[in-house]
Design a protein around this nucleic acid. Structure first.
Lengths: 170, 170
DNA sequence: GCAACTAGTTGCAAAACGCAACTGGTTTTT
DNA sequence: AAAAACCAGTTGCGTTTTGCAACTAGTTGC
């Protein structure tokens, strides 16, 4: 229940007050690019090893902020399903830009950088297509099937290809 | 001297480890949009009221990370001038996307939102032009004069217009 | 019934943050 | 020349946030 007031009404500042910490955007990243939807998945299936109390806290505030929602999994009474809202889906361009910047200036590994590069090359058009896919999986919005693989599949395949090449080499 | 290792080599994670706090990007924002170049300017001329120790710390790490540089002001022995590097200038698209997201989903004030809106409408083309202007002021890169006002001037004028209308109304 | 799995919660130590006062130097004013 | 104002931070200290590890409590599969 922290109803403290913002430091200013600047768009960038307000965005930082919602997402400006070291974990929130990583959770969104895992939901978007890794299709993580349950607490345990978010807790264990990512490289950075978030602690459970931090994860619980961030999920709570992201729900409060309208970035994600929590619903019950019909197949398991205790499981919750976290979904992106439209507001959450529209963080994709933010992540894409951060990703492009990171891959350009920071020591990103080859296998993790390939997705960033592909996403940067694809540009706003690819992002829009990806966002449409996310609207389908997270919001149930039906869309016309496109020929060929989805953006999510393309990114995944590129990652696997680099990994295969890497292990073949190493 | 914190040489601790990153949580992962993911582009988004590495970017967050550099910029993922509530102040760093606000400093960059003020340098880009407010043309703040000195410690005192950054300290006092922004709405959010950063404390001097936090500002000193962030400036130090931003220099270490290669996002900004510090040089001496020839007109004043004690004054330092902070400048964006190319790496820093290329944070503009990140800020622009965050700004666009914020103005769409958060309670941004009218006078502060107008710049966000203009920047979003201008799109990547306007961003590129703005970045060229920043390369001139921060890196000394000469560019061909364009007809009409600069992007910085346009944004400033839009802000002043809203403010004028607001005070006339109120 | 029991092991494994689910979503968190709790306790506590360490780190980061934020305020206010202060340092040491420089420039401007009178 | 002395005083006032300005400059870039630093220091001390209390508060808040973070991070680790262990733990609770309910659910499912065998």
């Amino acid at each position: 229940m922290d109803a403290e007031q913002p430091r200013s009404s600047c768009a960038i500042n307000l965005t930082l007050e919602v997402l400006g910490d070291k974990w929130s955007l990583l959770i969104i990243r895992d939901m978007i690019f890794g299709n993580r939807r349950h607490f345990r998945e978010l807790l264990t299936k990512s490289d950075e090893r978030i602690s459970s109390n931090i994860l619980a806290d961030r999920l709570k505030t992201l729900v409060e902020q309208g970035v994600i929602t929590r619903t019950h999994d019909p197949t398991h009474k205790q499981k919750g399903i976290y979904s992106l809202t439209e507001q959450g889906i529209e963080l994709l361009p933010v992540l894409a830009q951060m990703s492009a910047w990171g891959v350009k200036y920071l020591p990103v590994s080859e296998e993790l950088g390939i997705r960033a590069k592909l996403l940067a090359e694809g540009g706003p058009k690819m992002w829009a297509e990806f966002m449409d896919e996310l609207r389908e999986t997270h919001l149930g919005v039906k869309r016309r099937k496109k020929a060929g693989p989805t953006v999510a599949e393309k990114l995944q395949k590129a990652y696997e290809d680099v990994m295969a090449k890497k292990t073949a080499r190493g």
